[in-house]
Design a protein around this nucleic acid. Structure first.
Length: 581
RNA sequence: GCGCCUGUAGCUCAACCGGAUAGAGCAUCGGCCUUCUAAGCCGGGGGUUAGAGGUUCGAGUCCUCUCAGGCGCACCA
């Protein structure tokens, strides 16, 4: 609809230009808005106001000239000038009514478009360290990332979702150590447990499972371990213990413990995500980048192109030459590659796998990381423009007044699974999506639980269930409804509530497109609330199952179309559309 | 100290690349169920958009400064 109006305006402008009344730049952007108020028609443009100054014409006069040159149109009832120079477009009623046909004809594809041009797109999100179950903080990234992916697919991008598994590095060593120490304790070895190791009960569970399979195979004499606990600096103590564990247990046994922890936690994470309705196309292992030498290959290439230098025994990347605020270490003094080195390789892999558009959904605490990753892509002569990093701000978690920590190490956190069990998947997903991603979120658990019945998601689902109920009543009463036949009577949909509902339904494709290209799924959530509101109002004002066949059929097509759009929208957000509530 | 994000009704949040009278929900007050689900609808009250300047036909939105909060500034991930 907007496109048609835009076309009319372009023709009008071309006409004015050919008469030398007006000059416009070639890249003129015609902005057409959905009017906020019915008295301003259905659509409005500020075109005359933006062109007025350049052409030294009074905006209202210019608006009149533009209107005079508008070609005849089938869809417009009338066009008006209002306020300082807005041009308001009023649609003919049958243009509104045609929306019903369009929706019912396209079904679950209503709202799709092809503007993504099948561009190969990778969306990476969650990617939490497999050192513990996902907590509520991860839920936001999961809900957001998957909604963005779904939206992009809807507008024609070829999207793949990926989870990057940080299965290498120090955090994982700490995890393995934590498992081992719990395992020793389970073997009645009297040994302390460091405060900065992973405290969660799930560690003990893994240790017990390990014991069940391997019995006392990994027990070492304690005399040599105990002195390591005397180290005062907590991080050094941990490192000392890890080193002891690897050296004395041997690489093979250490790997068994390490993998037991990794596999167990990864399985939990995968299950929790499936339960949350979040699916990944690929789980990408950081370790694989080390094992197949991609990391080494990256570093060699950087060295070859003179992006690396040595300082204090470490290898540094000259990222400050490429927009980063300082240079970054690739290889530490102790010879180990940094996480950043893996990440360079990971992004190379993304490009080499053919992704033209690369989207990373990161927690806001990683924002300082963007510049160095982009710098590395430039240094490897990969276009860094194709990388877009979407930052999701933190959710601060409260239980009533009490602020809760979401630290995995402390082991005290609400898991995503617990949230799901308490609040429900639909409500939780919608709760996350409602907030735009760059907003900080105060998530009061008590509130979320106690108000779960007031969660707007139920408002939307209720509209859907009500519509389903109407159709159930219809068949119970033995009243015939044939969509094709009923569609012949949509011209009867001209009551105020019906026009309002039709206009909202017509907006849906725009909402999808805009939500997708701006990566703002909350726009869809708010739209669905609006749509449900229009429906509930209509429901209260009019009876659908009436004796008049024509009126009844017309109304039924409208609510059937409404049902379809609610379904389409909710499914994009990972929320179900129940038929009964 | 530097960088990023945020500040809108009592609370939680919207506001479509700046646009017409800043909107919802919760809470509060008042109406609506012999008719398709009252998890609903209709109406009232509630605002100096943190503050001060600036840009322009027009600012919650853009710029500068101040204040307040969150996050980041590792040879951790």
């Amino acid at each position: 609809m907007k496109n048609q109006i835009q076309e009319l305006l372009l023709q009008s402008l071309a006409e004015l230009e050919s008469k030398d009344i007006l000059s416009t730049s070639n890249d003129i952007l015609i902005k057409i808005e959905n009017s906020r108020s019915p008295e301003h028609g259905d659509f409005a443009t500020n075109l005359a106001m933006t062109l007025a100054k350049k052409n030294k014409i009074n905006p209202r006069q210019l608006a009149q000239k533009i209107i005079n040159q508008l070609p005849k149109s089938e869809i417009l009832e009338r066009v008006e000038i209002a306020g300082p120079g807005f041009i308001n477009f009023f649609l003919k009623q049958d243009s509104h009514q045609a929306t019903v046909v369009k929706i019912l004809k396209n079904g679950h594809r209503y709202g799709d478009s092809k503007i993504g041009a099948n561009i190969s797109t990778l969306v990476e999100f969650v990617s939490a360290n497999p050192t513990g179950p996902l907590h509520i903080g991860h839920g936001r990234g999961a809900a957001y990332g998957t909604a963005v992916s779904s939206l992009l697919r809807k507008i024609g991008f070829n999207v793949s979702c990926e989870y990057y598994i940080n299965d290498a590095g120090r955090q994982m060593d700490i995890l393995a150590l934590s498992v081992w120490l719990r395992y020793l304790q389970h073997n009645d070895v009297k040994i302390p447990f460091p405060e900065n190791a992973y405290q969660g009960d799930y560690i003990t569970d893994i240790a017990i499972a390990l014991y069940a399979e391997y019995a006392g195979k990994f027990v070492l004499p304690t005399e040599k371990i105990m002195p390591l606990f005397e180290e005062k600096a907590p991080e050094l103590k941990i490192d000392g213990l890890i080193k002891y564990c690897i050296d004395n247990l041997g690489e093979k046994y250490y790997r068994i413990i390490f993998d037991a922890g990794l596999d167990s936690i990864l399985t939990t994470i995968k299950n929790d995500l499936v339960g949350f309705g979040v699916k990944f196309n690929n789980w990408f292992s950081e370790r694989s980048l080390v094992e197949n030498k991609t990391v080494e290959k990256c570093i060699q290439k950087l060295i070859k192109n003179d992006w690396v230098y040595e300082k204090d025994g470490a290898q540094w990347f000259r990222s400050s030459k490429l927009g980063d605020e300082k240079d970054r270490v690739l290889i530490r003094e102790n010879g180990q590659a940094t996480y950043f080195a893996s990440d360079i390789a990971y992004h190379l892999s993304k490009v080499e796998r053919g992704f033209e558009k690369i989207i990373n959904v990161w927690g806001a605490d990683h924002h300082g990381y963007i510049a160095r990753v982009k710098a590395s892509m430039q240094a490897l002569e990969l276009s860094s423009d194709r990388l877009e990093v979407l930052l999701v701000q933190f959710a601060t978690l409260y239980r009533g007044k009490e602020k809760l920590q979401m630290s995995t190490r402390s082991g005290e956190f609400i898991t995503l699974k617990e949230l799901q069990e308490e609040v429900g998947k639909d409500a939780a997903r919608f709760f996350y999506i409602m907030r735009k991603s760059e907003q900080h979120l105060d998530f009061d658990l008590e509130l979320a639980k106690s108000e779960s019945n007031d969660n707007p998601v139920y408002y939307i689902q209720y509209a859907h269930a009500r519509i389903c109920s109407v159709f159930r009543q219809l068949s119970e009463k033995g009243i015939n409804y044939q969509q094709a036949e009923a569609l012949k009577h949509i011209s009867k949909l001209n009551e105020a509530h019906e026009i309002k509902l039709l206009a909202t339904l017509a907006r849906y494709p725009d909402v999808i497109e805009n939500a997708a290209i701006t990566y703002e799924p909350h726009q869809l959530a708010y739209y669905l609330k609006d749509l449900a509101n229009d429906f509930h109002t209509y429901y209260n004002a009019n009876q659908f199952i009436v004796d008049d066949d024509i009126i009844r059929n017309a109304r039924l097509t409208l609510i059937e179309a409404t049902k379809q759009v609610i379904q389409n929208g909710l499914s994009l957000l990972g929320v179900t559309a129940p038929e009964v509530m």
